[in-house]
Simulated assay, not measured.
Amino acid sequence: MAKETVQAVRQAEEKAAQIEKEALAKGEMIIQNAREEAKNIQSSMSKQVLSKAEQDLKDVQLQGNKLMEAAVQKAEKEIILLKEVAKSKEQAAIDLVLTEVI
């Protein structure tokens, strides 16, 4: 009977050691999977942030181009008005010179 008890204790110890070994292996596998998933999430988020930044940059460039175009059109209109004012003053200056000369 003592022999059977010793054998049962040894079997229980062996089974406990096997369970511990399996638990450690499973724990390592879970940790490795978690690391890989974290890397994938980080990579995905980095790509999303980069994509968003690129889109924001394109939007800002487009808005800047529109503002520049509007400023150029406004400047061109002002130039036309200034030329018209200068032309009308030119005629007035010519008339003034002619009246002074005559």
Rank of each mutant, 00 (worst) to 15 (best):
L82S: 07
K87V: 03
V72I: 15
S51D: 13
Q61M: 07
Q42K: 10
V9N: 11
M45F: 02
I94K: 05
K74T: 07
V97N: 03
E14S: 13
Q61D: 07
K21F: 11
I80S: 08
Q73H: 10
V6Y: 10
K47N: 10
I31L: 13
E22L: 12
K83G: 01
R10I: 14
S43K: 14
E13G: 08
V85I: 14
V85D: 15
A93P: 01
N40I: 02
A2Y: 15
A75N: 01
K47L: 06
A17K: 07
I79F: 04
E100K: 13
N65R: 06
S44E: 07
V6W: 09
D56H: 00
K52D: 00
S88Q: 15
V6M: 15
E28T: 04
V6A: 14
E69S: 05
A2H: 11
D56F: 00
K3T: 10
S51E: 14
Q61Y: 07
A25F: 09
A70D: 12
L96T: 14
V60Y: 10
K89T: 06
E84L: 03
I102C: 15
S46Y: 01
A25S: 08
A17W: 05
K15G: 03
K26H: 13
L62Q: 14
S88I: 15
I19A: 15
Q48L: 06
S44M: 06
E22K: 04
D56G: 00
K87G: 03
L81R: 12
G64F: 02
L81T: 05
N65D: 05
Q61C: 03
D56S: 03
I19L: 13
L82D: 08
Q63P: 00
M1T: 05
Q91L: 09
Q73C: 01
L82C: 09
K26L: 14
M1P: 02
K47H: 06
L62G: 06
K87A: 14
E20F: 04
A86V: 05
M1F: 08
A71I: 01
Q55V: 03
I79D: 07
L82P: 00
L24E: 15
A25W: 05
A92I: 04
Q73A: 13
V97K: 06
R10P: 00
M29E: 15
K66V: 13
I31P: 00
I94S: 01
S51M: 04
A16Y: 09
N33A: 10
K87T: 09
T5S: 11
T99V: 14
Q63G: 02
L50T: 04
I41Q: 00
S43G: 06
K87L: 06
K39G: 02
E54Y: 02
Q42A: 07
L50G: 03
K87Y: 08
Q7G: 04
V85Q: 12
A34R: 09
L81Y: 04
L24V: 15
S46D: 14
R10S: 08
A92Y: 03
K52P: 00
G64N: 12
E84R: 07
Q48N: 11
K21E: 13
S44Q: 13
A12E: 10
K21R: 14
A17Q: 09
G27P: 01
I30L: 11
K3P: 00
L57G: 05
I30C: 08
R35G: 01
V60W: 07
L62E: 14
V60A: 15
K89S: 03
K39M: 07
E36K: 12
K39A: 04
A34E: 12
I41M: 02
K66G: 00
A8E: 10
G64T: 05
